[in-house]
């Protein structure tokens, strides 16, 4: 992690100071429609009425999303069929920023390169965006993004995985600004009934090689109880599929504009990251802090 914690890093340090975990929520721009997606993205923030997410991930749909599971892919495909454009991502970022919540864009690299990396960064920054998550761009291929994100002061969040070597964990974290995205399962996105034991292990490994790193954990969190679990060992709990599913369900029910399901899940998750550690998590957190091994399997969701 670069010495500058970036917009999102500073926010996560504040949240850490409050003794809780942060919450990030993902939704696409353009699904179920552009207008409703802007409403839904704002709803993630709580809009001043209730607790919401601390960070919004604006997903920009792509035709060949090799990291997306079925739920997110389905919504993204529909958004594309309904005509979503790259430029709409900046409208979405603006909408979120107008609620006073940080926003990052999450998308596949070809869309950025095609728009023009410099132009993309400029438009993202002027919309009030904090940075970008790049699921198919590792620091190996990111020379241009490193340069441009520096020029516009944008955060850059790369991914690490349980299969990353210690060397790659170290170099990836060093290339990030803001936080590093730990994919907790060896798999694609999708809400799961229990989170993976791989997550706490991976976070521990990141902290071993980069003690000051801020770590977000994604892939698999679907309710407040999971969020509480993950918040006990990560700085940021990332939720995607479980949120997207509420929009798919609403459309299925013939009421695509109905965001009550979404608001309920957000409220549950927001309460989860504020609930404080469970008894078992407290023990684990203490162990993590003291550096004793956490590599026993089945700590989470068993």
């Amino acid at each position: 992690m670069s010495t500058d914690p970036g917009h999102t890093g500073r926010m996560l340090l504040q949240i850490r100071g409050q003794g809780r975990g942060g919450l990030a929520g993902f939704l696409h721009v353009g699904y179920p429609t552009l207008d409703i997606s802007l409403q839904a993205l704002k709803a993630l923030t709580g809009e001043g009425d209730s607790e919401g997410v601390d960070l919004v991930e604006v997903g920009l749909p792509y035709s060949d999303p090799m990291m997306d599971g079925a739920t997110i892919q389905r919504a993204g495909t529909r958004a594309l069929q309904r005509g979503v454009r790259t430029r709409d991502a900046f409208r979405a970022v603006e909408a979120v920023a107008s609620c006073g919540t940080s926003a990052v864009v999450m998308t596949y690299w070809n869309l950025v390169e095609r728009y023009g990396t410099d132009r993309f960064a400029r438009d993202l920054a002027s919309a009030g965006g904090a940075g970008m998550i790049t699921p198919d761009l590792t620091p190996n291929e990111a020379q241009e993004w490193l340069r441009v994100s520096d020029a516009y002061g944008l955060d850059r969040i790369f991914l690490v995985s349980p299969s990353s070597t210690d060397e790659r964990l170290r170099s990836t974290v060093a290339a990030c600004r803001g936080w590093v995205y730990a994919t907790s399962l060896m798999g694609v996105t999708g809400a799961r009934t229990q989170t993976s034991a791989a997550a706490p292990e991976l976070v521990l490994r990141v902290r071993e090689v980069a003690p000051s790193a801020l770590v977000g954990v994604g892939l698999g969190v679907s309710n407040g109880e999971h969020a509480r679990e993950v918040a006990s060992f990560a700085d940021l709990v990332i939720v995607g599929s479980a949120l997207v599913k509420t929009l798919l369900d609403a459309e299925e029910a013939g009421r695509p504009e109905d965001l009550t399901g979404l608001r309920a899940v957000v409220a549950d998750l927001a309460a989860g990251v504020r609930a404080g550690p469970t008894e078992r998590n407290r023990e684990r957190s203490a162990a993590v802090a003291s550096g004793t091994s956490q590599r026993s399997p089945g700590l989470v969701g068993t």
């Binding site: 090799m66 990291m67 690299w109 699921p135 198919d136 761009l137 590792t138 190996n140 291929e141 790369f158 991914l159 690490v160 995985s161 349980p162 299969s163 990353s164 070597t165 790659r168 990836t172 994919t183 060896m186 798999g187």
Partner: peptide
């Protein structure tokens, strides 16, 4: 060319 892939595949 290059390797534009999720980190999860890099080790493989």
């Amino acid at each position: 060319g290059g390797r534009f892939v999720p980190e999860a595949l890099f080790a493989a």
